[in-house]
């Protein structure tokens, strides 16, 4: 049996966004092994990291959507992941993002990736809105959510402990 997934690759000025695969593994395993992964269940050993990354990949096969890997056009580096994460205990998909290495921070890459993915969710997939669950201590992600125009959603609290719900809406839509 052939499972085929027809996923358009997204492109921004600096990035290609594509379904994650083996090429992204070294960068993702390194990230999940570091303290920087504290809001993603890390740091964790290589086996647990592989398990987690592999589940990100497998979600695409089960749901038809998932987190893209973000690859720099000029170097081919996997700088991060961005997209709707949707494990079984979330009632709805969660727009999530990460940068694999501190050296990719401060360049607007996460924002660039998120804007492209969110635009795709709204305009191509027709989603009405999408939530992000952000840890109260994750100041970087909070700032990015606000920069992306997401609004604090106190009506539908996060299922993840110590997190707030930020909800993204299509531009011009009334929350």
């Amino acid at each position: 049996m052939t499972l085929s997934l027809n996923v358009p690759q997204l492109e921004t000025n600096r990035l290609i966004l594509r379904v994650p695969g083996a090429a992204d593994m070294p960068a993702m395993l390194a990230f999940l092994g570091e303290d920087r992964a504290e809001f993603y269940g890390g740091p964790m050993n290589e086996h647990d990291a592989w398990h987690k990354f592999s589940a990100y990949v497998g979600q695409w096969m089960l749901r038809g959507y998932g987190m893209y890997s973000a690859v720099l056009k000029d170097s081919g580096d996997t700088v991060g992941m961005a997209g709707p994460f949707h494990p079984s205990h979330f009632d709805e998909p969660e727009m999530s993002w990460l940068l694999t290495d501190a050296k990719f921070e401060g360049r607007g890459l996460a924002a660039e990736a998120c804007q492209a993915v969110i635009a795709h969710l709204f305009s191509t997939l027709g989603w009405a809105n999408v939530v992000s669950y952000i840890d109260k201590a994750n100041h970087g992600s909070r700032k990015l959510a606000e920069r992306l125009g997401a609004q604090l959603d106190t009506d539908r609290p996060s299922p993840v402990p110590n997190c707030d719900s930020y909800r993204h809406y299509p531009q011009g839509a009334v929350a």
Binding site: G21, A22, M25, H51, K52, F53, S54, A55, Y56, V57, G58, Q59, M61, L62, P87, S88, H89
Partner: peptide
Amino acid sequence: ENRSDAWRWFACNLGHWTL
């Protein structure tokens, strides 16, 4: 331990096929 961990293994298995 719970359904969500089980779902993660189930998704991981499909990721394993891909990777």
